[in-house]
Amino acid sequence: MITTGGGTGTGNGTERSEGSPDAVVHLYQELRRRGVSSLGEVGAQLRLSPEEYERCRCELTDLGLIVPTNPAQHGARGELRAGGVGGGPPRESAGDEAGDGDTVAVIDPEIALLRLLHREREQLREHLDEADRAYDTLETLAGAFLRAGSLTRADADVELLSDYRRIQQVLEDITDVIQHSLASMHLTSLRREVGERVLSRDRRQIENGVRVRAMYSEQACVSPEVAEHLRRRVEAGVEVRIASAVPMPLIIADEQFAVVPVDPAEPAAGAVLARGPALVRSYLALYEHCWHTALPYGDGSAPDLGGDGLSEQQRAALSMLASGMKDEKIARGLGVSLRTVSRMLSELMQEMGATSRFEAGVRAYRLGWVD
Rank of each mutant, 00 (worst) to 15 (best):
Q219M: 02
Q219K: 04
A220W: 03
C221K: 08
V222Y: 02
V222F: 03
S223T: 15
S223H: 05
S223E: 07
P224R: 02
E225S: 11
E225Y: 05
V226S: 01
V226M: 03
A227V: 12
H229M: 01
L230N: 00
L230S: 00
R233A: 07
E235P: 05
E235G: 11
A236Y: 08
V238H: 07
V238Y: 11
E239W: 13
V240D: 01
V240P: 03
R241T: 13
R241V: 13
R241A: 14
I242P: 07
A243S: 13
A243K: 12
S244T: 09
V246W: 11
V246T: 12
V246H: 13
V246K: 11
P247Y: 11
M248H: 14
P249Y: 06
L250M: 09
L250D: 11
I251Y: 09
I252Y: 06
A253W: 07
Q256Y: 04
Q256S: 10
F257D: 02
F257A: 13
A258E: 09
V259Q: 06
V260T: 10
V260S: 00
P261V: 12
V262T: 14
A265V: 14
A265T: 15
E266R: 07
A269E: 12
G270P: 06
A271C: 10
A274R: 10
A274E: 11
R275E: 07
R275W: 03
G276E: 03
P277G: 07
P277I: 15
P277N: 06
L279M: 13
L279R: 14
V280Y: 04
R281Q: 10
R281N: 07
A285V: 14
L286Y: 08
E288R: 15
E288M: 12
E288T: 07
H289A: 04
W291F: 14
W291S: 10
W291H: 12
H292I: 05
H292F: 15
T293L: 13
A294V: 01
Y297Q: 06
G298R: 14
D299W: 15
G300I: 10
S301Y: 03
S301K: 05
A302I: 09
A302Y: 07
P303C: 09
P303H: 02
P303D: 02
D304E: 10
G306V: 05
G306T: 04
G307D: 13
G307Q: 10
G307K: 06
G309Y: 14
G309W: 14
S311Y: 01
S311R: 01
S311A: 05
R315V: 03
R315C: 04
R315M: 01
R315L: 02
A316V: 07
A316E: 03
A316I: 04
A317D: 02
A317Q: 01
M320T: 08
M320I: 12
M320D: 08
L321D: 01
L321M: 04
S323A: 05
G324A: 00
M325Q: 03
M325G: 00
